[in-house]
Deep mutational scan, measured.
Amino acid sequence: NQASVVANQLIPINTALTLVMMRSEVVTPVGIPAEDIPRLVGMQVNRAVPLGTTLMPDMVKGYA
């Protein structure tokens, strides 16, 4: 099963992502693939992302 990117903490709206904010986990539904974590660093979320939430492509500005 493919691992997805999951929020390791509450990520406030418009926050630029850092490695410490994300972890990989096998979840359903599948979100952004864990191998894209390096690409996500520095990108901003367009909404608040609660701890444990799977990051979906539409949550990250410029990802989709």
Rank of each mutant, 00 (worst) to 15 (best):
M56N: 13
M59D: 07
G31P: 00
R47S: 13
V49S: 05
P33S: 12
V30Y: 08
K61E: 08
L55I: 12
N46P: 05
Q9G: 08
A7D: 00
Q44W: 10
R47P: 03
E35T: 10
L51V: 07
M22C: 11
M21S: 09
R23L: 12
N46R: 06
Q9R: 04
A64W: 02
P38H: 12
Y63R: 06
Q44S: 09
G31C: 02
V27H: 07
G52M: 14
E35C: 15
A64D: 07
L51W: 14
L10P: 08
R47D: 14
G52T: 13
A7H: 01
S4V: 12
N1M: 15
E35D: 05
M21R: 08
T53A: 10
P38T: 03
T54F: 08
M21I: 04
L40W: 02
N1Y: 13
N1R: 01
I37N: 03
Q2T: 15
V6L: 13
G62L: 08
I32C: 15
D58M: 07
A64V: 09
M22Y: 02
E35Q: 08
V26M: 08
M56F: 06
M21P: 01
G42W: 04
V26R: 01
T15G: 04
P33F: 14
T28W: 03
V20N: 07
A16C: 05
L19F: 14
M43D: 11
L17A: 01
N46W: 05
D36R: 04
L17C: 02
R39V: 09
G62C: 15
G31T: 04
I11M: 12
V49C: 04
T54L: 09
M56H: 14
M21T: 07
N8S: 15
T53D: 12
T15P: 01
T53H: 15
N46A: 10
L17D: 01
A48C: 13
G31D: 00
T54P: 03
M56G: 08
A3F: 13
Y63I: 08
T18Q: 04
P33K: 06
V45E: 01
D58A: 09
Y63D: 04
G62V: 02
N1G: 15
A64L: 10
Y63K: 03
V20S: 06
P50S: 12
N14K: 04
P38F: 09
L10D: 12
Q44A: 14
D36E: 11
V20W: 05
M21L: 15
A3S: 11
P50H: 11
I37W: 02
M21N: 13
D36F: 04
V30I: 12
L19I: 07
Q9M: 12
V27E: 10
P50K: 09
G62Q: 14
T18L: 06
I11S: 00
V49H: 02
R39C: 03
Q2L: 08
P38Q: 13
V20M: 14
A3C: 14
I13P: 05
I13C: 03
G62F: 04
Q9L: 07
I11E: 00
N46S: 13
P38M: 06
P29L: 15
P33D: 11
P12M: 11
A3W: 02
V49Q: 03
P50V: 15
L10I: 14
L40P: 00
V27P: 05
A48E: 15
M43P: 00
P12K: 03
T28M: 06
V30D: 15
